[in-house]
């Protein structure tokens, strides 16, 4: 049980970087960016290919991030320069990336078993080698957990700083009110491109870490990732959201972890794994529709209250 929960937490943390990426586009830039599906697989593909050809796993991960940044750039240019609607721009990049990822990987999937990854490097440092962890059977998981926590913490720290800068402010206002932003002298096109680059860089980072953790990269691994990202953002917002930017980012991370714990739970309860995507889609649909349900529910609630008032 501890191992299942631990596995869910780790997966949640690794996916949290994707979720933060989705948060930046969906919540801050106000764009539903489907590039995510391609750039997560791209991160995995680049990291896997590079590590397989003997590159240092840290360099391989950085290369993956650069790939994601370029994918975001492509979507940004399609949207701002060629005036293609954002949803469609994302889909175009995503489809294009599928072929690119196949070329990068050279085949549909690539195993990384027994190869040096970021986690094995940390494992060699001695994390998880103590008697206590070994007895609990966490020798393998602790280095992964350490790397995941570290990566998420650094990301949150950097983003918190960035969104407090002049450029960060401009990016936020661009997503919230592009007309006002232009009238205040902000180049909204550049800000949209920048936001998409940051977001997809994080998503590819996430993909690279996931591939190294499961010791396996697959060009199909992005399918449904945007929905998983949205689900995590929404869960985080509903359950943990506070006002400050830092707490919102933390909420997003907790949302990603909660999502994985829920999935682990329903699997444990006997739901077939093949039904997972349907389950996620329905969850997201319900969560997105919450305001509608609320608006129907409020009048009913009020009329009940009124009736109670009259009778009492």
């Amino acid at each position: 049980m501890l191992q299942i929960a631990m596995g869910a937490v780790i997966l949640g943390l690794l996916w949290a970087l994707t979720t933060i990426g989705v948060y930046i586009t969906y919540k801050i830039l106000n764009i539903a960016d489907l590039t995510v599906e391609g750039s997560i697989a791209m991160g995995a593909a680049i990291a896997a290919r590079a590590i397989y050809s003997g590159m240092d796993p840290f360099k391989a991960t950085i290369l993956a991030i650069i790939g994601g940044v370029l994918a975001g750039l492509a979507t940004g240019l399609l949207h701002t320069k060629l005036r293609i609607p954002p949803l469609l721009s994302g889909i175009l990049t995503m489809i294009g990336l599928y072929s690119i990822n196949l070329r990068v990987l050279g085949k549909a999937n690539q195993s990384l078993l027994r190869l040096k990854t970021i986690y094995t490097v940390f494992g060699d440092l001695g994390i998880g080698k103590d008697r206590f962890s070994t007895q609990l059977g966490l020798g393998q998981t602790l280095p992964i957990l350490a790397v995941a926590v570290l990566c998420v913490a650094i990301t949150i720290f950097v983003l918190r700083w960035f969104f407090g800068t002049e450029i960060g402010y401009s990016l936020r206002s661009t997503g919230d009110n592009p007309r006002m932003s232009r009238s205040q002298g902000i180049n909204t096109n550049s800000m949209i491109i920048l936001g998409l680059m940051i977001s997809n860089g994080l998503v590819a980072f996430s993909g690279a870490l996931i591939a190294q953790q499961q010791a396996y990269a697959d060009v199909q691994m992005g399918t449904g990732s945007i929905v998983i990202g949205l689900a995590s953002v929404i869960i985080g917002e509903v359950l943990y959201a506070r006002r400050s930017f830092l707490s919102r980012l933390v909420a997003v991370v907790l949302g990603a972890i909660t999502y994985r714990l829920i999935i682990a739970l329903v699997l444990e309860l006997g739901m077939p794994a093949s039904d997972l995507k349907l389950f996620t889609a329905i969850t997201v649909a319900i969560a997105l529709a919450l305001p509608v349900f609320k608006s129907h529910w409020e009048p009913i609630k009020n009329s009940i209250r009124r009736r109670v008032d009259v009778t009492s």
């Binding site: 407090g164 002049e166 450029i167 960060g168 402010y169 932003s181 002298g185 902000i186």
Partner: peptide, 16 residues
């Protein structure tokens, strides 16, 4: 207001 104070100026990575 901080956004407006920087109207027409180059925006950098210094504090918002």
């Amino acid at each position: 207001l901080a956004l407006a104070l920087r109207r027409g100026m180059r925006r950098t990575l210094s504090r918002g």
